[in-house]
Design a protein around this nucleic acid. Sequence first.
DNA 1: TAAAAAATTTAAGTAAGCTTAAATTTAAAT
DNA 2: ATTTAAATTTAAGCTTACTTAAATTTTTTA
Lengths: 219, 219
Amino acid sequence: MKNISKEDYLRIIFKHKNSDGEIKPNLIAEKLSVSNAAVTDMIKKLSHEGYTNYQKYKGISLTNSGETYARNMVRRHRIWEIFLNQVVGIPWDKVHDEANRLEHSSSDELINRLDELVGFPRYDPHGDPIPSKEGKMPKQKKYIALSKLKEGDSSVVVRVNDFDEKFLSYIAGIGIKLNETIKLLEKRDFDKSMLITIKGKQWNISEKLAENVFVEVKK
Amino acid sequence: MKNISKEDYLRIIFKHKNSDGEIKPNLIAEKLSVSNAAVTDMIKKLSHEGYTNYQKYKGISLTNSGETYARNMVRRHRIWEIFLNQVVGIPWDKVHDEANRLEHSSSDELINRLDELVGFPRYDPHGDPIPSKEGKMPKQKKYIALSKLKEGDSSVVVRVNDFDEKFLSYIAGIGIKLNETIKLLEKRDFDKSMLITIKGKQWNISEKLAENVFVEVKK
DNA sequence: TAAAAAATTTAAGTAAGCTTAAATTTAAAT
DNA sequence: ATTTAAATTTAAGCTTACTTAAATTTTTTA
Ligand SMILES: [Mn+2]
Ligand SMILES: [Mn+2]
Ligand SMILES: [Mn+2]
Ligand SMILES: [Mn+2]
């Protein structure tokens, strides 16, 4: 294939498909910042080429071939992220956009070599699982959204949504990162905002923020 | 700008312009594997945007702005090459194509960081000078083509042309690399082929090959 | 220096990947 | 069950970066 746009569509479909393996055009359009019309066009092409299944007005899904291609794109993306973070030394909240471009510009041999250099990690800097060279997905750790915590709960950060760099640098700024402990002190009913503790400091966070940070509750 | 095609045109113009700073459409077309008509089209666009000077049927040259942009592209290309070679461990004869893509997909911040990681080298794995962040070009070492050696001369490899991976892996296979010593034993008049010694082994090489390897004669 | 060859430009056309606007279908709300 | 709203598709059109073929200019060679 070797086509930046198509590769982006496939990776986004893979990442955001629901539990039935389906995704709506609307969501793709939003994630890629293109019009719905552009999505319809592209999905028709991808379906012609055997990467997606498409029926008018129905949910879109990946074929086996599309699934394989997409999983490899996810692998490329996440390996670049972790390589940039661990070897190049770019902060974990800054690697996403760079990886988003590099993922299209490197051979599989290079990706495999980078993977080797960082020691075949199973999760990327945001806690997302990295498919192996053979396409196997590590189990995603169990987690709940930070917004679902009960007052008094202590938790450990397991994953964060990585699509908005502004969001990431904000949470990095208040000390949220993988494996960090977060305790919920208060939750306000009227706007669902929360008061939390990180490394002894207290912070007020919005519901929106809390919905994009995922934690494991500590017993 | 942020446009892969235009960036490739600028880098190629920079690399292959003659001593007057000019280049013919024909050569650009050849280096980029596109038609002459495509070159005319693109040069018109680049000229409109202030990156090149263009008059029908005359040689093409870079403006100040084009020169700056192009030099940065060369920097990106060569830093990727040396990073891939030194940090990632890809053989020097295999880095060119990979760099050719990566050069368009990385921020200046990333390039500067890679530069730092490899210790601000002045030459790439093929002996070509790497422009500094400020755009300063290290002096190119003095050299002559291997094909210009006299029988009996001993020499050191200073630079090799890097545009054909087949060529590079062939010469890498016979032991040619930067700083390697090459001695010319015989040169045949009828086809200009040569018999050389590298690390005690003798090799017959064609004139074509010898024209793409550059050496400094040892006294 | 005239003829032939090569290089360059112009013209016409294509495919990809978008856009906006209008038409159609599906989902949500009353 | 209608009506309204939202999502989706179709239609028409744009830009970019190419192509081939024909016309033009420059360079080379006889
Ligand atoms: Mn991408
Ligand atoms: Mn990530
Ligand atoms: Mn390139
Ligand atoms: Mn090089």
